[in-house]
Amino acid sequence: MRFVIDLSVALRLIEERAKIPPQNSLVAPTLLRSQILSELFAAVEGKEFDRREANARLNHMRALKIRFLGDRVLQQVAWDVADALGWDDTFQAEYVALTKLQADAFVTLQDPLQRVLEGVVPLGSFDDLFA
């Protein structure tokens, strides 16, 4: 199966050094790379761990082979999603749009977002990534 993952899922996968089975693949909007980098930078600045650990986590992210997408169609659909859901920006909408366009399910650890998206796109659980 093909799953769209958001920042919450990506950070957990990276922290746990998880491996995704070959029958499943991960996709995300290109903005996820910047979100991960920013979160790791903040963690180092906040003394949660050192730069070496941040680099190890970045390397694990790269090993997950997440396919990053961000074309014109994704942007148009994200705009429409944000508009339809009454959101103030398009950041989360990019994940929803990508799910609509390219994936079987969207996985997030954010309960409020899951509730909003019920019936909008298929949702998966963290455990589904390993099934």
Rank of each mutant, 00 (worst) to 15 (best):
L109M: 07
N59H: 05
V4L: 05
P122R: 03
Q76H: 12
L64K: 02
L58V: 14
S25M: 04
L11I: 14
E45F: 03
G46Y: 02
W79S: 06
L26T: 06
V121F: 07
T108H: 04
E45H: 07
I36T: 07
A42F: 14
A105L: 01
D71Q: 09
F91G: 05
L74D: 10
I66Q: 04
I36F: 00
E48F: 11
Q92F: 03
F130H: 04
G119I: 02
F130G: 02
Q102R: 14
S8D: 10
A131G: 12
L129T: 12
M1N: 06
D89Q: 11
L69R: 11
E94M: 14
L32H: 02
L64W: 00
Q75T: 10
P29Y: 03
L113F: 15
S125H: 07
Q92I: 02
L129G: 14
K19T: 07
L98N: 05
E94T: 12
D83F: 08
V27F: 13
Y95L: 09
K100S: 06
D104R: 10
T99K: 05
I66K: 05
D111T: 14
A97V: 07
D89R: 13
L26I: 01
P22V: 10
F91N: 14
A10M: 00
F49R: 04
E53K: 13
F130K: 06
